[in-house]
Each structure stands twice: as C-alpha cells, then as structure tokens.
Design a protein around this nucleic acid. Structure first.
Lengths: 249, 249
DNA sequence: CGTCGTCTTGATCCTATTCAACGTGTGTGG
DNA sequence: CCACACACGTTGAATAGGATCAAGACGACG
C-alpha cells in the first residue's frame, strides 16, 4: 500500500509503546530487539466492518496482528458454506495457518473497525534467526494455535448448553486479559457466527441465550452481555471451577 | 535413557538415509545441514503397543518424530473421558501442541510397535537459528498442524457417513504418501478410536462399516480394509472429486 | 417510513445416541 | 489342549437433542 493511503493522523504507535506487546511477538524481547522487530512491522490503514484483511487463495507474504477491533476467520467449503474457525481479538496473530503455504487458506473479515499490524514473513523468518527470543515466541504462538484448535474441537463435542457457556467464559477471560471488563461486554459477532463457530444453528444459540437469561446466568440485550452468575456458568460449562483458559475462541 | 537400554542390534539409521526425510524436518536441508540436525536426534528403543511416548503433565523437553508404527494422541478431560486428537503415522512430528509450554498437554500412546526419534527442543531451537531451511520447515510444519486441526474440525461437522468416508480417504492418501498401498491397509486403531476421533459412537462406526461393505464401497474383515470404489467414496465424502488431502487424521 | 439483516419463538422431524444383548477372536492359565 | 476371560465388534429398538421449516418481531440505517 502506497504511503498516501496511510492517513497521517493515525497514531503511529510502535511495538515498544504497544500495550498488547506482552501477548504478541515482542513478549520476551529486550528493548533493542523490539526496536529491530519494529522495523519490519507495517501499520496499515484501518479496516472497516465488512472489509477483508485477506481472502483464501491470495498470495501469502505477511502475517498480521490485530491491534484493535475484532475479526472473524473462516474457511469456505467446496459446498459453499462457511466454517468460522475463530474470532480474533487485539494482540492475536492472524494467518498462522498459511505459513509455508503460497496462499492464504482462510478468510479474515472485520466484524468492526480494526487496526492491524502487518509483518513480512520472509523478514520475520530472517529476524527470528538472529533473535532467539523471537524465534521462541513464534514457535510458542504457533504451538498455542494448535492447542487452541484442540480446545475448539473439544468444546464442539459438548452439549449445546456447555458449548455456549464455555464460549462466553472464554471470551470473558480474553477480554479480562486485555484489561477490559470480564463481566460485561459487547459481542462483535452475530448469533449466526457464534452458532457456526460452535457447530450449532443460530436458532439454537438464540434459544440458549433466552434460557440463560431466564436462569439469571446472564443479562443480555442484543449483543450486550452481562455475566451475572459466573460460578454457575462455570459449573454448566463442565470445566472444573475457575481457570477457564482464554483459548482461541 | 542410558545406552545399555538401547539395543545395539537396532539399525542406527540417520536422517540422511531415512526414507521419511522429505516429510520431516530435513525436507529442504543440504547434506551438511542434515548432518548437523542428525547430531541432535536421538533414536530410542522401540515402543511397544500400549506404551506411552509421553503423558500430559510430564515435563516437555523434546519433540518426537515417528519412524515406524502408529500412535494415537489424545487429551484427557476433567470429566475423565478421552478425546482422540489424531493418529500419527511415520514421518510425522509429535508433541507440537506443547512447544513453549513446560509440560506435555496430551498423551501419545503406541497402537502398535513404534520407533521414534527424539529431538531436544532447546537444541532444535538453537540449530534452527543457524539453519534458515530448518527454521522454515519447523514453522511450516507447525502451520500445517493448525491447518490440519481446521480440517479435523471441518470433518466433524459433516454427516456421519461423510466423516468416515473422509477419514478412510485421508488415511489412504497418507499411506500412499509413505509408499504403501492406498487401496488396502490395516487400521491400527479400534472402531472406538475412530469414533472418538470423528465424534461418533463406536456403534455408529460399526454400522457405517457394515453399510459401506453392503454398498460395495469397501471390503473389510476386522481392521483390514480394501477400498473398492474410490470415486463413489469421494462423492460420498462431499469433497470435490480427487485431491483428498492427507490431512492430519 | 420502509427495508434488510438480525433475532426470537414454535412445531415437527431426523440423525445419531443410548441401552441392551449377543458374536468373535485372541491370549492365558489350568 | 481346552476353557475361560476380556477386549473388540455387531446388531436391534427406543430415545433425545438439535436441525429444519416457518412465521413474525426488532432495530439500525438509508
């Protein structure tokens, strides 16, 4: 993207100043290493709701990190229907499933206005050769990615009620990790998205929300959710009390 | 493991001579680089059916590659039941979901006698700093791992019939990749394992096998399977004809 | 104000599960 | 060598959980 498409009024933050760095690639780097990493990070114009960060089939030369907003990632089946593979929150890497492939394998779509950092993969590989901490963090994040998919797989084997409970608790944990309220948040995705992600229909999700409200587990109007009874929600989710992992939901 | 537990009659093959190297870490390395890698690879005694390569919770210092035989990997739920996350065939890495974690997160159990290579993770990280091709291959394999889990997730959303068809075709492709017959093989896992992996009950798997035999899609006695009508199996699987990816089943 | 995407709610249906009983095959010990 | 146990597999009948089909309400936005 030419510079003239990069509005100058946007804060040109750097990795050092970024509050998300502990979740991201710089996690364990020294200041001078962060500065080196910062050199290969590009900060693009904001992505608006409904815009694609990338589409399956496009050549893959960069990986991305979400700085603000929210995305969903999904696969497109030959049959034509979507499979939502995840929702991306700030600090999370995007496009990890395409490293080493020539093309993106999935779609990444903005659910709300989103700021994204882009990192040239070739440069990142080179730099990670010189910075052991970066190399380690990259491997760690990829490994976490696999683990997260295992969690997703596990979740989708549970009963519908447990799936949604786990989903809400996991989202809550992720918001908390980012310094946001864990008992009250606004879902960036539709019921349909949640259903697709949890392998349930949107009708089922809707009915579950209704039931959760009736049981006074949550309060909710539209996309705004308040968690009222976290411990009961934990019990319902089937996970041993506390320590719901933020996962990769 | 002390040397006296390593039977001297075992062929001490090396990475250079290994027929699986194209699937494994040495894929794109020069001869001298392979030699360097070979220095940090340990070849342990064979693992017998029912033995664990590792268990969740054990300290994680090495990753493993299967040289022969077959393993299953699974998670243990707090509820006590298993979740089979995959079946490992020769040339595939094991323990990728635990990189950067202190402990293994899953269990790896031999389904039949298995030979395994072990690679110290710290040394591998160090070496991958010096060898760009190794670094790239490691990232690629991890990324493929994520992609494979996406495939698994996708598969488990299909109808029971389609899941099993995809499973069989995927296994077939993986055997072929390894120079084995793709139309005829012996399943290393039980009906229960398949069912668990595909999120179906063993009864359902059994019924499906019966149906597939009656439709003359396959021939099968116990664990021995012949694929009789591959194109119809493809059609049933819902995947556009041909090009069933070996996946990570 | 009307439209479109989103969400809710109800009635019915279907697929895979559950429960149960019975085969089969293999390895072990008497 | 046979009897037994045990893991694995098959088959049937009843059940349930979520999908599907259908209709209508809500809310944001042009």
């Amino acid at each position: 993207m030419p510079d003239n498409l990069r509005p100058s009024h946007l804060p040109q933050v750097n990795c050092y100043a970024c509050s998300l760095s502990r979740l991201c690639l710089p996690a364990s780097l020294t200041d001078s290493e962060v500065a080196e990493l910062d050199q290969i990070v590009r900060r693009n114009r904001p992505l608006h709701k409904g815009e694609y960060l990338f589409r399956a089939g496009e050549p893959m030369r960069q990986i991305f990190v979400l700085r603000s907003g929210a995305l969903k990632t999904y696969l497109l089946e030959s049959s034509g229907d979507h499979q939502v593979t995840g929702f991306v929150l700030p600090g999370e890497l995007i496009g990890l499933d395409a490293i080493g492939a020539a093309e993106f394998r999935s779609f990444a779509l903005a659910l709300e206005t989103a700021m994204v950092c882009a990192i040239d993969l070739e440069q990142l590989e080179e730099l990670s050769g010189r910075i052991p901490g970066l190399r380690h963090q990259l491997l760690h994040i990829l490994s976490q990615g696999i683990h997260g998919e295992h969690e997703h797989l596990r979740c989708n084997r549970e009963r519908a009620e447990q799936r949604l409970a786990q989903f809400l608790l996991s989202l809550s944990a992720r918001y908390q990790q980012r310094g946001l309220r864990e008992d009250q948040f606004i879902l960036p995705m539709t019921r349909g998205d949640i259903g697709n992600y949890l392998d349930l229909t949107l009708e089922t999700i809707s009915r579950l929300f209704t039931r959760f409200v009736q049981s006074e587990l949550i309060e909710c109007q539209g996309r705004e959710v308040h968690l009222l009874n976290r411990s009961e929600l934990c019990r319902l989710s089937g996970i041993e009390e506390q320590n719901i992992s933020p996962g990769r939901h």
